[in-house]
Nucleic acid binder design. Sequence first.
DNA 1: AACAGGTCAAATGTCAAACATTTAATGTCT
DNA 2: AGACATTAAATGTTTGACATTTGACCTGTT
Lengths: 249, 249
Amino acid sequence: MEKLTLGEEGELPVRIAAAIRDAIVEGRLISDQRLPSEQELAEQFGVSRPTVREALKRLAAQSLIRTQRGATGGAFVNRLSYDDAASQLITTSTLLLSMNAVDFETACEARYALERACVPFAAARRKADHVVAMRAEIRRQALPDLTDESFCASDVAFHRALVDAAGNPVLSYQLAGAVEAMQPLMNMITFTARSRERIVALHTAIADAIDAGDATAADTVLAELAAYTSALAEDVRRARSARAAGMTG
Amino acid sequence: MEKLTLGEEGELPVRIAAAIRDAIVEGRLISDQRLPSEQELAEQFGVSRPTVREALKRLAAQSLIRTQRGATGGAFVNRLSYDDAASQLITTSTLLLSMNAVDFETACEARYALERACVPFAAARRKADHVVAMRAEIRRQALPDLTDESFCASDVAFHRALVDAAGNPVLSYQLAGAVEAMQPLMNMITFTARSRERIVALHTAIADAIDAGDATAADTVLAELAAYTSALAEDVRRARSARAAGMTG
DNA sequence: AACAGGTCAAATGTCAAACATTTAATGTCT
DNA sequence: AGACATTAAATGTTTGACATTTGACCTGTT
């Protein structure tokens, strides 16, 4: 590996991590390539081993590298998989939503807008197994003794299958993050108010439309589902403010 | 802070980081709250200070905490801002695209699909300053002696303004990641083949449509822009394979 | 000659103790 | 009362050591 140069400002581990990250992004370090040992890196950068370790750990936290112990061990450039990227996106989005008091309306709007963006592709390219997966989840959702948690999980799986049907991994990755991150917020309203029959009916209509390759119909139903979810949220909000008023007045 | 419990498997810093992250996600640690000192954490978890530090650095790499030196220093729970989240998303997406040889077609399709999802909201809610920003970028793009780099940067800024006009920060955050991450890929084709006049004309049409609140028109033009970009990519690809064939044959 | 086993070395993981640096609070002098 | 020096607390960094893991190599047996 050629020599890396450090930036000017900031703390040492940050600068070292940035130098290595740049090397990866710019292709000077390629997937599965082994980095020099911590000792060698320490000498190259003129710092101590713990400092190098902190830098490597920062990169490991972002899944940019993986470390392996033992004789042939070391730090290796990670080939970032869609799954790794998606799980990071989910973590980030979940935190973003929970820490910024994003109102349900905004998150919900974003989620369905993104999902509707997938529908034309899903209708055009759906494979049999995507439709099978969607219908399987619908059957699960129709089971009368399903717990709320399981229903919600199945809901996520249904939408995941819909998005995957679009056959665009970049879209899937972005959507998976949005859908999963919204799950806690969704649960807050859906546990209390939602009609499973209504949801199942809408899901069935979506699956039918996708199966038939009818993007327009699928989009219409999805819009209806978005409106229904939004209305539910409104109900919950009204109920809450009424209860709050009752408690203070 | 109440006591945190470690998970069962994995390395110590990973488990410690996970314990703290869970506490943040679940709201047991709230924004701007100060964590115990590294020394105290080390005692609580029964590990050494460097181990705690590694855990904290993992969290800092994800912008979950920030550290501050000095007398009243320490580690503080970070309120994850949209900007922080967006920059992480950009890093992740950029790497994902560069390391997985995502073909231009897939990335381009995803990008414009997401952007078109914003258009109805942008048309409905655009404020004057968004339109002003879009038109300012268009004027920049029309300057004859603009470098390719500046043109591309202005291109990103234009689309950013379009997305922001939708008035949904969650959408903005997701889109910003997609658009910026695609920039290197876009540059590869646009430096060589694109007609600035055509782009400027399309951008102008989009700005006009958004300004007029005409979502359908804006969507149509955006679809046209997507098709044009896609066609350019096709040209570049054909030229490349022809050149490659010429070299080998 | 092939295989099983043990030994070894290299690398990361962890710990301990110290020193450096930064920062704000505190106390003191004018 | 305000300016300035002191101090304490915290993170940043270094050094050195030991623990653990794991593949490579050597060796002995079949």
